[in-house]
Nucleic acid binder design. Structure first.
Lengths: 273, 273
DNA sequence: CGCCGTGTGAAAAGGCTGTGAAACGCGTCT
DNA sequence: AGACGCGTTTCACAGCCTTTTCACACGGCG
């Protein structure tokens, strides 16, 4: 996510000036990028910030709004580390917060160093379980996706993706092999709930496909799952499917052997049927 | 990993009997599988236990051994959730533990419910970040049902189920062994009340049967209960019941032996009588 | 034997997606 | 201010896939 390795991008939602001051100093010293938000921020804004973690005092948002926020934000941004941090919390509150999606809950007063260690632990937990180096440029098929550039490339040439196009591609590529529902895609890219009948996802998929194919024909990346959504999976385009009437069994087509994950996944796609 | 969904497998390394007793009671109540280890256990033994999480009091292992253990085990089993839990810890100790690889650090005395909530949070985060790692792709008979793909497979080959077909199969398979009434099936798949005389469920059961049998003949999965509904139960097809004139006694037919649960249930079904 | 519930095949209806283009919002340049 | 370029959103329509409906055959059950 972040440019440098070891540098994290964090947002802090709190009004506790003393806490903010002390924590801010430490964050500066560590060289982390951070931003303080006085109160709640629009969800799509938080999505756009590409955060690694979020430190939030639920009580700063109001008695009920805090819980709603935890619930909503954890659903909207899976992968974001959420550390709740409040004064005078009860066991029941902490349990509720953790169950709603918080990854950790620290009781104030607390040492900023410990808060940072817990942020690191939460973020590390996420990265560690992704064997693929997540911080490096993601390379799939002929595509190279650089999050530090907000751009994708093929053979070093830029695809000229717009911001939304890039974010859509990023979301899809990070969940490569997995089928994502339209609603979830919309929620994670646009940051709010999709209205019924909204075709934005479809339209952007089309634009993405066009730009990708222009630079990397010979590969199919985004597959449609009828009635569900889309799946990102780079695979060479199947030439046998083209209208060549002559039986081409001589040239061994890439028959997906059982047990081969790529092969399995390939057959799910709509165009296979 | 674990047999049932929602069930976690945990090991606790501690000597604090009071803590162990209280926590154990809660773990039992929640139905989690857990094991208490008095002291350190060989690393390979821990690996073999296929744990979701590990609760450990570093001080129970000795002044220095605790740190070494955290370091070693977190490196050895990335993906394992590690919750440290000790009395009278200092900020420096907690920071050190978290940096060494612990995912969370709870200070005793603590409420077992909070410990469990924190375990859940740690495991949840690990799972969410590795979607492809099967969080339980429900395997029954020769069938493999993957909800992250909205598809079912036999020997790695997709059944090409449509969305409704998949949802029907999922509902049935999750209630494997018990008979579901048409009304309930309809309500859970379609989301609203079934109109009188609606044959949709029947039609989709037929489609499902066709697609399943095409890929997995030799097994019966969906059984009809006259006047009631359907029951999902994978069982080898009974060749003796077939009116096949050619004597196939050479190939040993899988006779459902008495005492076998699947066999017993089988006799309830319509076609058996 | 007759009734009712279920299996089956196919036609009809409905919904979903691909696609091109127009409309809109926004910031920049002249 | 107005024109312009750019990116995003909305719209309409065609084509295809899915779902629903229907008619009929079959089989259990009283």
């Amino acid at each position: 996510m972040s440019a440098r390795r070891g540098t994290l991008r964090v947002a802090v939602i709190d009004r506790d000036t003393a806490f903010l001051k002390v924590l801010g100093k430490r964050l500066d010293a560590a060289g982390w990028e951070y931003r303080v938000l006085p109160g709640g921020a629009p969800a799509d804004e938080l999505v756009a910030m590409k955060l690694n973690a979020l430190v939030v005092d639920p009580t700063a948002l109001g008695p009920e709004e805090g819980w709603e926020f935890l619930d909503r934000i954890s659903g909207l941004m899976p992968g974001l580390g959420i550390i709740a941090c409040s004064t005078n919390s009860t066991v029941a509150q902490r349990v509720r917060g953790l169950r709603l999606g918080a990854d950790d809950w620290v009781s104030k007063p607390c040492h900023p160093e410990e808060v940072m260690a817990r942020i690191e632990a939460v973020v590390r937990r996420r990265r560690r379980s992704r064997p693929e180096a997540e911080q490096g440029p993601l390379v799939v098929g002929e595509l190279e996706i650089r999050d530090d550039q907000f751009q994708a490339y093929v053979a070093g040439r830029t695809l000229d993706l717009t911001r939304r196009e890039f974010e859509l591609l990023e979301i899809l590529a990070e969940a490569a092999g997995q089928v994502l529902e339209r609603d979830e895609i919309y929620r994670r890219v646009w940051g709010y709930e999709m209205a019924h009948g909204d075709r934005s996802v479809d339209v952007f998929v089309r634009k993405l496909r066009a730009k990708i194919q222009k630079h990397s024909p010979g590969w199919d990346y985004i597959h449609t799952h009828f009635g569900i959504g889309y799946r990102f999976d780079p695979e060479p385009v199947d030439r046998t499917a083209m209208g060549a009437p002559e039986a081409p069994e001589a040239l061994s087509e890439p028959e997906p052997e059982p047990g081969d994950l790529a092969g399995e996944l390939a057959e799910i796609s709509t165009e296979t049927s």
